[in-house]
Design a protein around this nucleic acid. Structure first.
Lengths: 155, 155
DNA sequence: GTTAGTGCAAACCTTTTGCAGCTCT
DNA sequence: AGAGCTGCAAAAGGTTTGCACTAAC
């Protein structure tokens, strides 16, 4: 995929049919700031086309994943076992998920690329995709948990 | 959990009841070389106790995960959406999964710890668990794919 | 016009839950 | 004895499939 290219352009180049439904879904994925799961994407898409079916969402996501146009995330299964999706247009990053409030931060540091390189060398492995997810507690939740603990002991 | 301690000892110390079923499951998890999913563990356990129920397997795994005694893996969902489990007794490592043959290698390099440290510092985050999974093609499959491609063009 | 894509319904796979009875401590 | 655990059956959550119809190229 050319850098900065939208998913739609990439698909068109591959000769994939651009239906009304796909245009809606791809726009949402391209523009969304959040990490979307199938159900959330479905609900957003229905806002634009109430007839659009949930199955079409799954089929579209599957196609995009197979084509390497989106990455599939689990976000530590923090909110259930559904998958989340994001375009691959961004630089590789790790997802840091707060297990208490669900906030997701993205880490772009050099250790990721370094690890990737080491794995390729060490195993003669050809990496197609990589996923790092970290679960724990964000700064704010650490504070709040400390406060609650204080209250708890008084009671 | 004390280093080198078996899961069973750790549970006993916590006052968790050690039933016949749990002993079977914990032995299997402790001794298994592979990454077990619930179904595989269930089948192995049934070999030792044909009455043992699948639900017990799920409940035991959930308890171990909640107690931080096992890690839950997805192995890039290579063979479906089930989860895999392994004891936490080993040093942290990344899982490198061949998308063609399913082989799993483990990477123990220093880049992992380095990334963990950077995330803690950068976000003031308290890491509880971390998971790195890499999908791609192992050396052998790369070779075989190259050969098949050669054949394919002749035909 | 052809073929890929859609919607609908129904199935599928993995995991969880409610409840009565059993068992570990 | 009694809380905690198990088995069974049933449901839930997330995703996929078969098929007839529709729309993109």
């Amino acid at each position: 995929m050319a850098a900065g290219e939208r998913i739609q352009d990439s698909l068109k180049r591959q000769g994939v049919r651009l239906t009304r439904q796909r245009r809606i879904l791809l726009d949402l994925i391209d523009e969304s700031g959040e990490h979307l799961d199938a159900e959330r994407l479905y609900l957003l898409a229905r806002g634009k086309d109430p007839k659009l079916n949930r199955v079409t969402v799954y089929r579209t996501l599957k196609m995009l994943k197979a084509g390497g146009l989106v990455d599939e995330l689990d976000l530590m299964h923090h909110a259930g076992d559904q998958h989340y999706y994001e375009t691959r247009r961004k630089q590789e990053h790790a997802h840091v998920v707060c297990l208490r409030c669900g906030a997701v931060e993205e880490y772009f540091g050099p250790a990721l690329a370094e690890m990737r390189r080491q794995i390729e060398v060490a195993f003669g492995f050809e990496i197609v995709m990589a996923r790092t997810e970290v679960g724990g507690y964000c700064g704010r939740c650490q504070t709040e948990m400390a406060q609650e603990k204080g209250k708890g002991t008084k009671q």
